[in-house]
Amino acid sequence: MQRESIDAIEANPRYQQLVRSRKRFAWVLTLLMLGIYYGFILTIAFAPELLAIPVAEGAIMTIGMPLGVVIILSAFLLTGIYVVRANGHFDRLTKEIQEEAR
């Protein structure tokens, strides 16, 4: 890539917006996922009895069961949220930048 086109793309406000907003978005989702997972692991390490509380009076099923399923679903949902935004908004920005760069 030529020096001038690097300068031009870096100076493009759309490029700056793309980089900034995608970075923020990706890190927010990453921290959410890590928070959910390590919150779960630390609960298991330090307060496992919390997960063994029955979901209702007299029930056998514990809170930990639906919670585990919710964590699995959250991983799927978070990737889904990322795909929708990246394949829509971010890709539109990228395409505009590509066209301007030509």
Binding site: T30, Y37, A75
Partner: peptide
């Protein structure tokens, strides 16, 4: 499972 979302993001 949780490694996958992070790789993606």
């Amino acid at each position: 499972l949780v490694g996958w979302p992070v790789i993606m993001f």
